[in-house]
Computed example of a mutant assay.
Amino acid sequence: MGVDRFQAMTTFVRVVDTGSFSAAARQLNVGQPAVSKTIAQLENRLQVSLLIRSTHGLTPTEAGQRFYERARVAIQEADEAELSARGAGAGLSGCLRVSAATTFARLHVIPHLPRFLDQHPGLEIDVILDDRVIDLVAEGIDVTLRMGSLPDSSAVARKLMGGRRSVFATPAYLARAGEPRTPGELAEHETIIYSQLSNVWAFTRDGTEASVAVRGRVRVSAAEGLRAAVLADMGLTIGSDWMFVPELASGEVKRLLADWSLPPIDLWAVFPTGRMVSAKARAFAAFVEEVMAPGHSGAA
């Protein structure tokens, strides 16, 4: 007996999205031979070749591209139809794949997941922690949380919050090095530099602009390292206010130059281009927006 038609469509769409049988098999939690067999049966039933196999991977034929576009929409509409039939009160189900920067997820997403999962007992969440910008389609991601400007202007995105940035240091470091009172004084301090940002910091206050080139013996490539270096009293840094929420509350970290402003880094929910945004992804983005809203325990 041949494979279920809907299952075959789902497998084919996943193969095209990932570009390989092996990657699709990993995402579907099946063996690669099962994926290959499903595609072969699908091509046999349709009496047409759907994929071109080459050293560069798998790409759809012209017929395969037409089938992919219709199948993808059919799968998404079936998911939405099931959700509608169950009613909003029944909650979401299936697996939601989310990606987010490691530190942000550890501080502001994962601690709140129990409440989101309680609201949707049929839902599973696969959280991919990565500070890099990853390929959402190739990785099978439903929604990613990104900071800053969006490199792809065609991306389907929703702004979740405006991200204020500040200068931070520990009282122990300030007791040793003194507290800067103006942006210019930052040049005399030991700075923990985030390698993904410039070491020239631009401040504004009441229409006045001030830029300072900071120096530092330590550079880090991820926010987790930035936090760890500051908490080890190694120097001061700039970061989004969400980065030190617990330590600001406890007094372990102090916000400096509070009357000066730095360019903000906004938080976005980004969805795979070319796909209908799923109800699961929309609900998760709304949940994170609620968590990060001013006054909520998850926000600064």
Rank of each mutant, 00 (worst) to 15 (best):
V3M: 14
D4Q: 05
M9W: 10
T10Q: 14
T10V: 00
F12M: 06
F12N: 05
F12E: 07
V16E: 07
G19T: 07
S22I: 08
R26L: 01
N29E: 13
V30L: 07
K37M: 02
T38K: 06
L42K: 01
S54C: 04
R66T: 09
A74Q: 12
I75E: 02
A78H: 14
D79I: 01
A81S: 05
G94A: 03
R97Y: 00
T102D: 02
I110D: 07
L113S: 07
P114S: 03
R115L: 02
D118N: 02
D126G: 00
D126K: 08
L129D: 07
L129K: 14
D130N: 11
D131I: 03
R132I: 00
P151A: 05
A157K: 11
K159H: 04
R165D: 04
A169V: 08
A175L: 04
R176Y: 05
P180F: 04
P180H: 08
E188S: 12
N199M: 07
G207S: 10
T208S: 14
T208P: 01
R219K: 15
S221V: 09
G225Y: 07
L226N: 15
R227N: 12
A228Y: 04
L231H: 09
M234D: 08
M234F: 11
S240V: 15
E247Y: 05
A249H: 09
A249R: 14
E252G: 14
W260N: 03
D266M: 06
A269D: 08
A279E: 13
A281T: 09
A285P: 09
G298S: 11
